[in-house]
Amino acid sequence: MGNNLDVKKAKVLEIKEKMEKAQGMVFAKYQGLTVEEDTELRKKLREAGIEYKVYKNTLTTLAAKELGLDGIVSFLEGPVSVAFGYEEATAPARVLNDFAKAHKKLELKAGIVEGTVFDAKGVEKLASIPSREVLIAQLLGSFKAPVSNLAYLLNAIKEKKESAEQA
């Protein structure tokens, strides 16, 4: 009996460590997915650098409560998987949301980003936030536009002066 308790304590510790390390997590109901669909989902998550696990809800509940994430407990009913995003907070939401659009059996239940719990609608909104790389590219593009316009303007003034000098 004591050995089983030790295994459960170790699992709770593992879940807790993953929750602490993750920038974002998404919980989903996966029941009804075929083996092929589940394999496809796991492949997409792996390619995005997201860890995907299925734990007993009671163990996940214990870990969440130890971390003060009690708000997630009400979503831990039935078969629930969790996707941990360690590098980008919104990546799990994006990948799971895109997959859920094509595979109706996958149901988003909730998510956590930086300690804030979101319901399924909140996870869908998180999924609409572009990746960090896209946001950086957009920011750099917005910096570049005024500089480019200034360069074109200065070049036009220079060309106008040169044409006036030649005339």
Score class of each variant (00 low, 15 high):
1 M>Q: 12
4 N>V: 07
5 L>C: 06
5 L>A: 11
9 K>W: 11
10 A>F: 13
12 V>Q: 03
14 E>H: 10
14 E>M: 13
15 I>T: 06
16 K>M: 13
18 K>V: 10
20 E>R: 15
22 A>E: 00
23 Q>P: 04
26 V>H: 00
27 F>W: 02
30 Y>L: 09
33 L>S: 05
34 T>P: 01
34 T>E: 08
36 E>G: 15
39 T>L: 08
39 T>G: 09
40 E>L: 10
42 R>Q: 03
43 K>G: 07
44 K>S: 06
44 K>F: 02
44 K>L: 05
45 L>R: 01
45 L>W: 00
46 R>E: 02
47 E>I: 04
48 A>M: 03
50 I>Q: 01
51 E>N: 07
52 Y>T: 00
53 K>Y: 12
53 K>L: 08
53 K>N: 15
54 V>K: 01
54 V>I: 10
55 Y>F: 10
55 Y>E: 06
58 T>A: 11
58 T>D: 05
60 T>N: 05
67 L>A: 10
68 G>C: 12
69 L>D: 06
69 L>G: 07
70 D>M: 07
73 V>G: 04
74 S>F: 05
75 F>E: 02
75 F>M: 04
76 L>D: 03
79 P>C: 06
80 V>N: 00
81 S>V: 04
81 S>F: 03
83 A>S: 07
84 F>Y: 04
85 G>A: 06
86 Y>E: 09
86 Y>Q: 07
86 Y>M: 12
87 E>R: 06
88 E>P: 03
97 N>M: 06
97 N>C: 11
102 A>H: 10
103 H>M: 06
103 H>I: 07
104 K>E: 15
104 K>T: 12
105 K>L: 15
106 L>N: 01
107 E>T: 10
108 L>N: 02
110 A>C: 09
110 A>I: 01
110 A>L: 02
111 G>Y: 00
112 I>M: 04
113 V>D: 02
114 E>L: 07
116 T>C: 12
117 V>T: 10
118 F>G: 00
118 F>M: 03
120 A>Y: 01
121 K>A: 13
121 K>G: 14
122 G>R: 01
122 G>T: 03
125 K>Y: 09
126 L>S: 01
126 L>F: 03
128 S>I: 04
128 S>D: 14
130 P>H: 08
131 S>K: 07
132 R>Q: 11
134 V>I: 11
134 V>P: 05
136 I>Q: 14
136 I>R: 12
137 A>Y: 07
137 A>T: 13
138 Q>Y: 08
143 F>Q: 12
144 K>I: 14
144 K>E: 13
147 V>N: 10
147 V>I: 15
149 N>F: 10
151 A>L: 09
152 Y>N: 14
152 Y>E: 15
153 L>A: 14
153 L>N: 14
156 A>Y: 07
156 A>L: 11
159 E>W: 10
162 E>N: 15
163 S>Q: 13
165 E>L: 12
165 E>H: 11
